[in-house]
Simulated scan of single mutants.
Amino acid sequence: MLKWLRGLRAAPVLPDAAWQAALARYPFLVQHDASDDERLRTMAAEFLRDKEFHGAHGFVITDEVALAIAAQAVLPVLHLPGGLDWYGDFVGIVVHPSEVVARRKTMDEAGVVHEYDEVVAGEAMERGPVMLSWQDVLAGSLTADVGYNVVVHEFAHKIDMRDGVADGCPTLPARFAGTSSAREARAAWTDVIEPAYQSFREQTIVAERFGGEAPWLDAYGAESISEFFAVACEAYFVNRLRFGEEFPALCALFDAFFRPEKA
């Protein structure tokens, strides 16, 4: 359905008991001021109006399931200009009861095709639906200390892919970080996230191969800079204090993008 048609329908009224239960289960949702809390609730209702949930393998989409996903999905766009327009390239959200085994195919530099299975807790498809494991969505209520959140991760990918490329750099606004052109803005972003990614990747490799100290963030972020962006977003939104201690420069960069009115 066209976006302007969806906008004609009123957003659902979220029952207070259900909303409070979601906030109690995911405490990181309430680390804001009162105006943020009201905005979160309003945008979650609009998200539920605009998106379609589908259960896979007999999984039943209850109000609890849909509300838990909606409340966490709107966190990354809570203060972004355009709000939910960042998620305008898709409608469907597919929820599996648990992790999914996905068949992958890649080609190496020599042109040899490799096929393998990968266990995934979620997946965001460019201009397509978002897939989530309910088991891992629920785990988000317990994993904020380690900066893990599958919902934020997959919707961060959607933000990254808005310009058609998953490269760890979302579409940046005009005059981002005091820059005067899109090229300067991208350079300012890259100058911060690239060294953070390389340092994280090196620490992950040392930990895995030589028994060094493991990084705080999920090691999956070392797979690529786009995965690092998504993993970093998880931690930024569910445990900003620890994220700021571990990645102060990156935290300031994210502040400038995700909370421009406070930058």
Results as ranks from 00 to 15, higher is better:
V74P: 02
C233R: 03
F59A: 06
A17Y: 04
P215L: 07
E118R: 13
V74R: 04
L23D: 01
V65I: 13
F28H: 12
D160M: 08
S199C: 06
P215C: 06
D85I: 03
L253V: 09
A174C: 04
M161L: 10
V152Q: 04
T106M: 07
F59N: 04
I93N: 00
V60Y: 04
L217E: 00
A24P: 00
R242C: 03
G111F: 09
A230R: 03
L67I: 09
G7N: 15
A124M: 09
Y148C: 01
A174S: 12
F90C: 02
Q20P: 02
G58H: 10
K262M: 14
G58M: 09
A252S: 11
R242K: 14
D16F: 02
L253Q: 04
P173I: 09
V146R: 15
A24S: 13
A102S: 07
K262P: 00
G164D: 08
A44D: 03
E234G: 05
R186I: 06
A44N: 00
D191T: 12
Q20H: 14
T143I: 03
E38W: 03
D89E: 14
V113A: 07
G92W: 08
R25S: 07
S180K: 12
F53S: 03
D37N: 07
D33H: 14
E109S: 14
A207C: 11
I61Q: 02
A18Y: 01
P27Q: 11
A44K: 01
G168M: 07
M131R: 10
A185V: 07
P15Y: 10
R127Q: 13
E38Q: 15
E227H: 12
Y236V: 06
I69C: 01
H54K: 14
V95A: 05
A34M: 11
A73T: 04
S98C: 08
G168A: 06
V192Y: 01
D89Q: 11
S199Q: 13
V165R: 13
F53P: 01
L78F: 10
I93A: 02
G92F: 09
G147I: 08
L40G: 01
T62M: 05
D191N: 11
S133E: 07
T62A: 02
V238T: 08
A24Q: 12
V120K: 11
F210Q: 11
S180V: 08
R162P: 02
V113L: 08
V192D: 00
A235T: 04
F258I: 06
L5S: 06
E246C: 11
V94S: 03
G147T: 10
Y148T: 08
T62C: 05
E126K: 09
D16H: 10
P97I: 10
I69S: 00
F176H: 00
E46M: 09
A188I: 08
T179Q: 03
L67D: 00
F243D: 02
M131S: 07
F28K: 03
E202K: 12
A11L: 10
I193R: 00
F229W: 11
A166D: 10
R183G: 02
R49C: 04
A68W: 02
L80W: 05
Q72W: 05
Q20M: 12
D163M: 06
W216E: 05
G128Y: 06
